[in-house]
């Protein structure tokens, strides 16, 4: 089996963010790249927006990589560093989930 690399996941997440912007006509400023804040603190998404983005990432991972994962569960929420705080954290978290 090919190892799924972080780069692939990163590409996929940024694609979903792009799609989200088109679908929801909301601009997410990604100038800071992986440091971009998504949710909580100065995050650019509200909880409904985050749910939509997370669902679209889950679907994309299933279609592209054939792996079914659940991103928004208690495990994710109880982490000291929220996987949803910054784009980079989200990519790391997905990488961790698909690798295990």
């Amino acid at each position: 089996m090919n190892k799924i690399n972080r780069e692939k996941i990163s590409e996929l997440v940024f694609n979903c963010i792009k799609k989200y912007q088109e679908e929801y006509e909301q601009i997410i400023d990604i100038a800071e790249g992986e440091q971009t804040r998504l949710f909580g603190g100065n995050g650019q998404l509200d909880s409904l927006g985050l749910v939509s983005l997370v669902v679209s990432i889950e679907e994309e991972i299933e279609t592209e990589l054939g792996i079914a994962i659940v991103l928004a569960d208690e495990k994710a929420m109880s982490r000291r560093t929220s996987p949803f705080s910054r784009i980079g954290n989200l990519i790391d978290y997905i990488d961790e989930l698909v690798s295990s």
């Binding site: 909880s47 749910v51 569960d73 994710a76």
Partner: peptide, 8 residues
Amino acid sequence: TNAITGQM
């Protein structure tokens, strides 16, 4: 169920 908004 989801952990962000309870349900969607």
